[in-house]
Amino acid sequence: MIKRLSQSPASVHGLTEPFALSQQMISKHIAYLVRARIVKKTKLGRESVVTLRPEAIKAVSDWALDYRRFWEESFDKLDAVLTEMKKKEVKDGRTRDKSFGKSCDHQDL
């Protein structure tokens, strides 16, 4: 729907057609978008015209990039956690080995 509205404003009726959905469903969906201030709805005679708020689509698009960044940055941190875990495991392994009388001092970390 946002894609459709990015081309031009449309009436509620006009928005119902391409989506093979009931007008009720579409209206509900539009209400959702109005509430979120992604679109605005204006009365034009008997029809309601729905217009996309350009600032909203930019926010969404920026956020989409942030969305990926969110995971990438979390994964960077996860990577650091794993490095610590590995170090700890090697250290624990050493302690265990020593208790069995083995020396791992030559082991390269």
Partner: peptide
Amino acid sequence: TGSNQIFDKLAVFVA
């Protein structure tokens, strides 16, 4: 309902 609507909902969540 088509992928655009799904995106719209997500957009709402984002907003």
